[in-house]
Write a protein that binds this DNA or RNA. Structure first.
Lengths: 340, 340
DNA sequence: ATCATGAACCAAATCGTTTTAAATTCCTGT
DNA sequence: ACAGGAATTTAAAACGATTTGGTTCATGAT
């Protein structure tokens, strides 16, 4: 059913019908109601591609998904939750992690293709090429994380620095002195922030920073296992780990157990938890102390902010920094004297 | 830059330019080459929304993502890999798991919105409402999994029955007699197939089926832990588990350890592995025996089949059943006599 | 009686392509 | 030199909405 035909059945012009459905003021309340009712009854819905052509809007938000990122789904769920009521789609493009060139190209294509009204940028670097590119191309975009590029941009981030500072401080309070940090991929802002939080906590107690206690890499259980295992075989070994994600923590648990040590007694572990429905900190054995932040909520909020940005709110006004809770469970305990 | 302007610069008509770019035969090779080169040089690209309007194609494939499904990302990565070279997007809509009504509504909206050319259906039931709906609405769709609805439809599935039959048989070969099965959500085809494979293996050895040894549920570590733990506390306890996924297996491992038993010695475990880059069977401790099938490959192939379907290949011709490898690692061993 | 005002509606132009149907150019064989 | 047909190219009509710039008709003021 096309607009023309639908309008004729109503005895109205296409103009009036279109306006009635889009909520313009110059249509009488009576007519508007009738149009709305008949649209439902006769099943009329505007052809979305015609609308897109004439309005120039795409009705979609673009998200680039790195391979190997199990966090992604949770974030997307949040976005979608918020966009459910709007008439806006999520368009997903995947890219190989760490292939910067391909990634830049992808963003460029996405931005100029006209298929999306806005783009989400994940895991930015302090001087992120993608941000410069999107700014140059003039397409609205939101950054999930922070960057120090000097172009104005909207962002939403969690307080990574504070989270790791508090986690580290807590371990120090418990008497730990050799605390290892398993951080994210090198060069990313959140990795640097976490590093900073870690160092600050050490500095506050006058404990020297030892670069051998810090590793960088993707959030896989393998990275967690390998690094934890190699550190635990050394002497003196660390008595505590701050892990970057749930997966990394799984690897650390495995390493600890493989050496017949016990998490929570011999070795303390705190991890950052993005809150997954299928793998929870409470369910690990022993239950895992975490700095906790909901990726789903971040996704929902970022979708919301995107709508605001598209509605005209200036990007330079859109900045949100979310605090992170520290939740203590069984995986943290006083430093074992024996291990010192 | 619009087509009209671009054509004028080339001294050609819009028609010829459009045809040259779309690869029609009635354009001379010389002209085609010139058009292609100039398009790159001047940066002309057809307005995608105009193309969509006039061709009636959406240039996108719709995927509905259930919440809580960590498998989803891997599948999507595969799809995207295949679609990278095509000019086709992936449009993701999320829905709450187990809210059938909302899900049906979502599929209906997706199919009639004109935003996608085809839809992917995941985890079907033997008599799946979504399949009937999409067939009725006349939109092309592909099923990831199998269904017994009598409408013709394209599908790709792995041999769940064979996988679990072989896993169970292998455990029987090792002398296990009380083998527990942690299956997927009740009512789904793949769950039924796995159940069938399990029963067949038992039947072959004349071992009676005991419903108390089978559980159903989502693929979370919690389900794995709870069920395994409650079974292991009984007497006689099972000596082996067949787990539905990596997450479930994590839960089983945890349950086994929590009772001071050892996986691979006291209790054998085989799980189905969809192959995740961030959590691998080799990296578990002990390494996990799995029936293995790549979700990513399935995604890529399903994207490929979707393109074929859209190109006119009849749905009734598109059926693929993939075999599943059984890979033995440390988590399986002979049944411990003591436990009998 | 006339005119300005505003509410409600409408005709036609527009968005930027693809595609149909027709026109032109270029060969080839007689 | 020219008909006939193949090979190229083109003008104009879609596609289905939104939006610009009216028109109509009542109402109340002058």
């Amino acid at each position: 059913m096309k607009l023309k035909e639908f309008a004729k059945q109503l005895g109205l012009s296409p103009t009036t019908v279109s306006r009635a459905l889009s909520g313009y003021p110059e249509v009488s309340e009576k007519t508007r109601k009738r149009v709305a009712e008949e649209a439902v009854r006769l099943g009329y819905r505007p052809n979305i591609n015609a609308v897109r052509l004439v309005t120039g809007r795409a009705g979609a938000i673009g998200v680039v998904m790195g391979r190997n990122e199990f966090q992604f789904c949770e974030f997307m769920s949040g976005m979608a939750e918020r966009l459910d009521s709007e008439d806006i789609d999520i368009l997903v493009s995947p890219v190989a992690v760490q292939d910067t060139k391909a990634e830049i190209q992808l963003y460029s294509r996405l931005a100029t293709s006209g298929r999306v009204d806005a783009v989400i940028v994940h895991s930015p670097k302090p001087n992120d090429e993608r941000i410069l590119l999107l700014h140059k191309l003039g397409i609205p975009f939101l950054v999930h994380g922070r960057s120090e590029t000097n172009v104005p941009h909207a962002w939403l981030d969690i307080d990574n620095e504070g989270a790791i500072r508090r986690a580290t401080s807590h371990l120090l309070d418990l008497g730990h002195r050799r605390i290892a940090l398993i951080n994210g991929r090198d060069g990313l802002t959140f990795t640097l922030h976490r590093d900073k939080g870690y160092r600050e906590a050490l500095e506050q107690r006058g404990i020297p920073f030892d670069p051998r206690l810090v590793a960088h890499g993707q959030f896989t259980d393998e990275i967690g296992f390998r690094f934890a295992r190699s550190l635990l075989e050394q002497s003196p070994r660390p008595t505590a780990f701050v892990a970057g994600s749930m997966m990394t923590a799984l690897g650390v648990y495995r390493a600890v157990r493989s050496l017949d040590l016990v998490v929570g007694r011999d070795i303390s572990v705190i991890a950052h938890d993005d809150v997954f429905p299928y793998l929870t900190a409470d369910n690990m054995a022993p239950s895992l102390s975490t700095s906790r932040s909901s990726l789903r909520a971040a996704g929902a909020r970022l979708a919301d902010l995107t709508l605001q940005l598209l509605a005209g709110r200036p990007a330079s006004e859109i900045h949100e920094l979310w605090p992170v809770e520290l939740i203590l469970r069984e995986s943290t305990g006083p430093a074992a004297e024996a291990a010192q």
